[in-house]
Amino acid sequence: SGVNQQQLQQLMDMGFTREHAMEALLNTSTMEQATEYLLTHP
């Protein structure tokens, strides 16, 4: 699906929903950016 499943699982383990985590990974290129994205786009 174009996203790193390991990163997706890590974000879900942090408490984010699958949909939200996927959106973040699709819009960013690193785990750090994805986390930042999730925190700034709740």
Rank of each mutant, 00 (worst) to 15 (best):
Ser1Val: 13
Ser1Met: 12
Gly2Gln: 14
Gly2Val: 13
Gly2Leu: 12
Gly2Glu: 11
Gly2Asp: 10
Gly2Ala: 14
Val3Ser: 06
Val3Ile: 12
Val3Met: 08
Val3Lys: 05
Val3Glu: 06
Asn4Phe: 13
Asn4Glu: 07
Asn4Val: 09
Asn4Pro: 08
Asn4Arg: 09
Asn4Asp: 11
Asn4Tyr: 09
Gln5Asp: 10
Gln5Glu: 12
Gln5Leu: 14
Gln5Ser: 11
Gln5Ile: 13
Gln5Phe: 13
Gln5Tyr: 12
Gln5Arg: 13
Gln5Asn: 10
Gln6Ala: 14
Gln6Asp: 12
Gln6Glu: 13
Gln7Phe: 15
Gln7Thr: 06
Gln7Lys: 07
Gln7Asn: 14
Leu8Thr: 03
Leu8Val: 07
Leu8Ile: 07
Leu8Phe: 04
Gln9Val: 08
Gln9Lys: 13
Gln9Arg: 14
Gln9Trp: 11
Gln9Leu: 12
Gln9Cys: 09
Gln10Thr: 14
Gln10Leu: 13
Gln10Asp: 07
Gln10Phe: 14
Leu11Asn: 00
Leu11Pro: 00
Leu11Gly: 00
Leu11Ile: 05
Leu11Tyr: 02
Met12Lys: 02
Met12Asp: 00
Met12Gly: 01
Met12Trp: 02
Met12Ile: 11
Met12Phe: 03
Met12Pro: 00
Met12Glu: 05
Met12Val: 12
Asp13Arg: 13
Asp13Glu: 12
Asp13Gln: 14
Asp13Trp: 11
Asp13His: 11
Asp13Ala: 15
Met14Trp: 09
Met14Ala: 05
Met14Asn: 04
Met14Gly: 04
Gly15Ala: 03
Gly15Leu: 03
Gly15Gln: 03
Gly15Met: 03
Gly15Pro: 01
Phe16Cys: 02
Phe16Gln: 01
Phe16Val: 05
Thr17Val: 09
Thr17Pro: 14
Thr17Gln: 13
Arg18Thr: 05
Arg18Cys: 06
Arg18Ser: 05
Arg18Gly: 04
Arg18Asn: 04
Arg18Tyr: 08
Arg18Gln: 07
Arg18Asp: 03
Glu19Val: 10
Glu19Tyr: 14
Glu19Ser: 11
Glu19Met: 10
His20Tyr: 11
His20Gln: 11
His20Ala: 14
His20Trp: 15
His20Thr: 08
His20Asp: 08
His20Lys: 13
His20Pro: 05
Ala21Lys: 00
Ala21Gly: 04
Ala21Val: 15
Ala21Tyr: 00
Ala21Trp: 01
Ala21Arg: 00
Ala21Pro: 00
Met22Asn: 05
Met22Tyr: 10
Met22Lys: 06
Met22Ala: 08
Met22Ile: 14
Met22Pro: 00
Glu23Tyr: 15
Glu23Ile: 11
Glu23Asn: 09
Glu23His: 11
Glu23Pro: 01
Glu23Gln: 11
Glu23Asp: 07
Glu23Gly: 05
Glu23Leu: 11
Glu23Ser: 08
Ala24Gly: 04
Ala24Tyr: 01
Ala24Asp: 00
Leu25Asn: 00
Leu25Ile: 07
Leu25Thr: 02
Leu25Cys: 04
Leu25Pro: 00
Leu25Gln: 02
Leu25Trp: 05
Leu25Ala: 02
Leu26Ala: 10
Leu26Arg: 12
Leu26Ile: 10
Leu26Met: 13
Leu26Val: 08
Leu26His: 07
Leu26Asp: 05
Leu26Ser: 07
Asn27Tyr: 09
Asn27Leu: 10
Asn27Glu: 05
Asn27Val: 10
Asn27Lys: 12
Asn27Met: 14
Asn27Ile: 09
Thr28Trp: 04
Thr28Met: 03
Thr28Ala: 04
Thr28Pro: 01
Ser29Asp: 14
Ser29Asn: 11
Ser29His: 10
Ser29Ile: 06
Ser29Gln: 11
Ser29Phe: 11
Ser29Leu: 10
Ser29Pro: 06
Ser29Gly: 07
Thr30His: 03
Thr30Glu: 02
Thr30Val: 02
Thr30Tyr: 02
Thr30Ala: 03
Thr30Ser: 12
Met31Leu: 15
Met31Asp: 02
Met31His: 04
Met31Pro: 04
Met31Lys: 03
Met31Phe: 15
Met31Ala: 03
Met31Glu: 02
Met31Cys: 05
Met31Arg: 02
Met31Ser: 02
Glu32Thr: 06
Glu32Leu: 06
Glu32Ala: 10
Glu32Met: 06
Glu32Pro: 03
Glu32Asp: 08
Gln33Ser: 05
Gln33Lys: 06
Gln33Asn: 04
Gln33Trp: 03
Gln33Pro: 00
Gln33Ile: 02
Gln33Arg: 04
Gln33Thr: 04
Ala34Val: 02
Ala34Gly: 01
Ala34Glu: 01
Ala34Leu: 04
Ala34Tyr: 02
Ala34Lys: 00
Ala34Asn: 01
Ala34Met: 02
Ala34Thr: 01
Ala34His: 01
Thr35Trp: 15
Thr35Val: 15
Thr35Leu: 15
Thr35Asn: 05
Thr35Asp: 02
Thr35Ser: 05
Glu36Gly: 04
Glu36Gln: 09
Glu36Leu: 10
Glu36Arg: 08
Glu36Thr: 06
Glu36Phe: 07
Glu36His: 07
Glu36Asn: 07
Tyr37Asp: 04
Tyr37Phe: 05
Tyr37Pro: 04
Tyr37Thr: 05
Tyr37Trp: 15
Tyr37Ile: 06
Tyr37Arg: 04
Tyr37Glu: 04
Tyr37Ala: 05
Leu38Asp: 03
Leu38Glu: 03
Leu38His: 03
Leu38Gly: 02
Leu38Trp: 05
Leu38Arg: 01
Leu38Thr: 02
Leu38Pro: 06
Leu38Val: 04
Leu39Asp: 09
Leu39Lys: 15
Leu39Trp: 11
Leu39Ser: 13
Leu39Val: 07
Leu39Arg: 11
Thr40Val: 06
Thr40Cys: 14
Thr40Tyr: 08
Thr40His: 10
Thr40Phe: 08
Thr40Lys: 09
His41Phe: 12
His41Met: 15
His41Thr: 09
His41Trp: 13
Pro42Tyr: 15
Pro42Trp: 15
Pro42Leu: 15
Pro42Ser: 15
